[in-house]
Write a protein that binds this DNA or RNA. Structure first.
Lengths: 326, 326
DNA sequence: CAGAGCGCCGAAAATATCTTTCAGGAGTGA
DNA sequence: TCACTCCTGAAAGATATTTTCGGCGCTCTG
């Protein structure tokens, strides 16, 4: 039955629908993240199973297929299907991973910081919880990142004639960050926040150029549209998204997945997605800088020099006046 | 089948010899030690099994009873007997424990991630190191943040008539992020990247307003200048900086310190500082959202609703065309 | 040295668990 | 309303685990 794996992954696209998706190797500890990432694309029953698993990995590891099926009010078949979706060959392997995860968590942190942020949390708790959440997001994103895709994206970007970046809302800032960095090492990069201008720019792209779309939801039309245009013009297209199965992936040669952190009322998804996106963007940048080291290193040094005079030379603490508030 | 457990333990002594020994609860991670302790009392075949398990927990966790039996040149029955001796109900449970142990050991840090990123690092290492560095930065920043100052900053911002934010370069994006979030909960916030306009705006401030300066170096003149103006006009001034003793602190009522991560050639300080700055900004935002919860919650919900239609509704994977690159 | 007793050992049966198949049914779009 | 798609669980089928049971080698004794 192992053959299913390679067969479907290799060329299972030709005939019927690919029977299973095993896009990623069995996740080690990034399971919770993977569940959150994939949950939206699951059916109701599967979501129930996934939720139970994410809720109590240790408890579920102690259950058989039948037990978990009963617990979640579903059938064995659904449990197995869920395990498959999460990237394991079957339930048995999911269960092993769960045991590993449980062991991992047990040695973990104070339970208080893992809780949601609440309206009446003291500020110290907010700091601790936010820091923990973002650390978690980083770990999950790093674990879930497909280095093959990343590598391909780096290669494309390093040799690109021109790099266009699309992102709106919070993702626009991530895009600007990437553009800023790439510019610093002498590449031709531009971040578009305006969808119209983005499309206008995309039309100019051709083979050898690179287009990057950043969207957490994976379904932001304003970002997908320019990427589609770039894709059709023959540019190498890269998507940075939390939904690798979303519409944006249709037009992406490389999909870089960011982890979706637990979202709460005070901390909407759009906010927590930023951390993961920035990590991916940083990885992309460092990768490109490595490939173009000969030119990148001096460029970085030069930009640093150029800014030095903008920093005042450690002025002593001088007396300072202030208008008294009436 | 579970009944065997209790039955034999309770009163299986009367007739024949107790069939199994279950003196201890399933071992957590002290498995290797347990094996060494029990090894002398094992038979030859069982010792071979135990040795294999102790040698390579991860590898054994991947094997079925039959597999492990073959590997050790013994039979399934012996493997099960060994599992029993080690305190587990059966092989299945030993296997789960093994998986946990493996996960535990693996998490025992890779030493390489603490090293600097090098030009010839493979991409997987880059991802690991970057993630690790950023996690470190988060932890350090959270630990070093003065909650008193933060609390004061939150209070000022929550009640401010208007909030102006100054930042240039990479910090400009952080400032924009903060402004974007505050706007979302109905506050009047504006991020200035242009130093001239920043000063122009700062002149308008007065007591009851808030000015935020973001600069990693703490000595960016373009950012200090507007903050100074705001300070002198009587506004409450906040500095987010990696150098709490730098010039910017002179004009700041509250100083929020970000951690300075190790910087390397490929990863300039300006790049790593962003992570800490964003954490501080997030804390500030959440704090403000808590204080203004009555108005913030509906505002957040409203902005979410308003954007919903911008996301295409899970379109199916449609065929897609692309111009062949010549 | 021969024989009996003891207990380890593994093959195979019995059981539990996991996986696959298949047909019914809910929801959706025309 | 109808046709269609895709989700869902029951049950059959395949694997894995556990138990049973008889063989074999060892040791101890006469």
């Amino acid at each position: 039955m192992k053959e299913i794996f390679t067969a479907s992954a290799e060329h299972g696209d030709a005939g019927g629908p690919p029977p299973v998706r095993l896009d990623t190797p069995p996740a080690p500890a990034a399971l919770a993240a993977k569940i959150r990432t994939l949950a939206p694309s699951m059916t109701r029953s599967m979501q129930r199973v996934a939720e139970a698993v994410a809720d109590d990995p240790a408890g579920c590891a102690a259950l058989t297929v039948t037990g978990l099926a009963e617990l979640t009010g579903t059938s064995e078949a659904t449990v197995v299907r869920t395990a498959r979706l999460l990237g394991y060959p079957g339930y048995r392997d999911l269960r092993l991973a769960l045991a590993g995860l449980a062991a991992h968590m047990q040695s973990g942190v104070a339970p208080s910081v893992t809780a949601d942020i609440r309206v009446d949390d003291p500020i110290a708790d907010v700091v601790a919880k936010l820091a923990y959440d973002e650390q978690q997001t980083l770990a999950d994103t790093a674990a879930g990142l497909d280095t093959g895709q990343l590598s391909a994206a780096v290669t494309a970007a390093a040799t690109a004639r021109r790099i266009d970046i699309y992102g709106v809302g919070a993702s626009a800032l991530v895009g600007a960050d990437l553009a800023q960095k790439l510019l610093r090492i002498g590449l031709v990069a531009h971040a578009h926040a305006d969808p119209h201008l983005a499309v206008t720019g995309a039309v100019q792209l051709r083979s050898g150029d690179v287009a990057v779309a950043i969207t957490h939801s994976g379904s932001t039309g304003d970002v997908i549209e320019p990427l589609r245009v770039a894709f059709e013009r023959g540019a190498t297209t890269i998507a940075i998204t939390g939904r690798p199965d979303g519409p944006v992936a249709q037009y992406a040669d490389q999909v870089l997945t960011t982890s979706t952190a637990r979202e709460t009322e005070l901390r909407p998804a759009a906010m927590s997605s930023r951390t993961g996106q920035l990590l991916v963007v940083d990885c992309l940048f460092i990768g490109v800088a490595q490939r173009t080291y000969e030119s990148a290193a001096p460029a970085l040094a030069a930009s640093y020099e150029a800014l030095a005079h903008r920093h005042s030379p450690r002025t002593a603490a001088v007396p300072r006046d202030r208008a008294e508030p009436r």
